[in-house]
Design a protein around this nucleic acid. Structure first.
Lengths: 229, 229
DNA sequence: ATCGTCTGTCACAAATTCGTCACCACGCAC
DNA sequence: GTGCGTGGTGACGAATTTGTGACAGACGAT
């Protein structure tokens, strides 16, 4: 059983629904007009968000950006509904980081299939998702960090950086790649910004600082259990 | 760097291409008509397969089923290209277990975005790029060497050197060739650099130092099991 | 406006890597 | 055995890379 948040214009209502994988049905759980979609998302932390880009009052993209800006909702896959296959919208959505899109008109069956596929794809990530070692807990999907049970606040930049490192799953992330993906630097920049942020991350990781390993001349690598040889 | 197999009808050629995430470009590596797409996939184990459903001679779906039937290719994500958004095809593809699809016509940019998104999603799952021989495990992406499970850190130069030796698969690598490929030395240089690095590599190989064999007057050779003849 | 936080840059310190060298050991031809 | 050529080894210094603390501007909240 998965929780799916649908932000649609046809119903003109924000619905928090439960998607039953077995029966392949949506079922409305709650509907609330007072709250914004983003607020609901942050409260309920659904497994998937279906976001219609053609919302009556607001801009779908800004909703999306808001969702991505918050660590709690950042990891949630978003399936976008775009009007009559306008390529520009589709591209913009994907570039922003949407996980999938469906173009109108679509059959309900197709939407179900895509939702199911997306849930299937992301299920592994969301389920196995927490890295734990001792009093160190990193929830992969929300990327919240807990040290000895206490949540650690990460700034937006730190969050993006840590996320890339963690999601790389032990692989080395090159300096250039990190600078590009976190800071948007296009060409090889000579900057110490990355080093500084790595240092700040390590500070916040406390005694687990070693999880972020330096690979000299290449970049950095995140390992859950930095075993000394 | 990811390897992507594209099975298309417009080129009427099976292309094994390399998709450069950084530059966001495809680059053709090899093209081969004699083999079937499935054979190539099983041989090369790409990170992603782009499968056109409207293949000239054969049925795209059967290709897909073949891919899923073999353990080697079963885990590889498949992105389907379907003709003019025929809903039936799309549904059938997703039901079979395709990971994504793109409907024609599409812009190249859009395909790139979807490929990139799919690779990003599945990056963790596909454990590629590891060289194994004996109890050696050389992970290309991690820049790590495992000896009987224990991780060994290599510097960038050491890694390049060892990689060339291992990939030579037992063949002797001449000094000049190594100096050229690792250090970029164009002409025959009189330097002891290579020797020093070989020594350092042997140190890190521990009791497996003998795997790097000296071929006097020629170069070096890597053998997984240095059996006394 | 004021305060606090986040961020990028800088200068300097520390750490690592790397190439070279001197010296030694070994193999081979005679 | 002797001599020559080739490779092994340890040490050293230079160059490169990264860690670190301080600082100032940007930004937002109060």
């Amino acid at each position: 059983m998965h929780t799916v948040l649908v932000v649609d214009d046809e119903t003109d209502i924000l619905e928090l629904v439960v998607f039953n994988l077995e029966r392949q049905q949506f079922k409305v759980l709650t509907a609330d007009n007072g709250l914004t979609a983003v607020q609901i998302a942050k409260d309920k932390i659904p497994d998937l968000i279906v976001l219609d880009l053609m919302l009556p009052g607001m801009d779908g993209f800004s909703v999306f950006r808001e969702l991505r800006a918050d660590p709690r909702t950042n990891g949630i896959p978003v399936l976008m509904l775009t009007a009559k296959g306008e390529v520009n919208d589709r591209i913009a959505g994907l570039e922003l980081g949407a996980d999938d899109y469906v173009t109108k008109p679509f059959s309900p069956r197709e939407l179900l299939l895509r939702v199911r596929a997306l849930l299937k794809r992301t299920r592994k990530v969301t389920v196995d998702a927490s890295l734990k070692s001792g009093d160190f807990l990193l929830e992969r999907n929300t990327l919240k960090l807990f040290l000895a049970g206490r949540p650690v606040d990460l700034t937006a930049t730190e969050f993006k950086l840590l996320r890339l490192l963690v999601e790389a799953n032990g692989e080395v992330q090159e300096r250039d790649a990190l600078l590009r993906e976190v800071w948007g630097y296009s060409d090889t920049m000579l900057t110490r910004t990355l080093d500084t942020h790595v240092k700040r991350l390590r500070e916040k990781l406390g005694k687990h600082a070693e999880c972020i390993q330096t690979v000299r001349g290449v970049g950095y690598r995140f390992v859950a259990s930095p075993n000394p040889a």
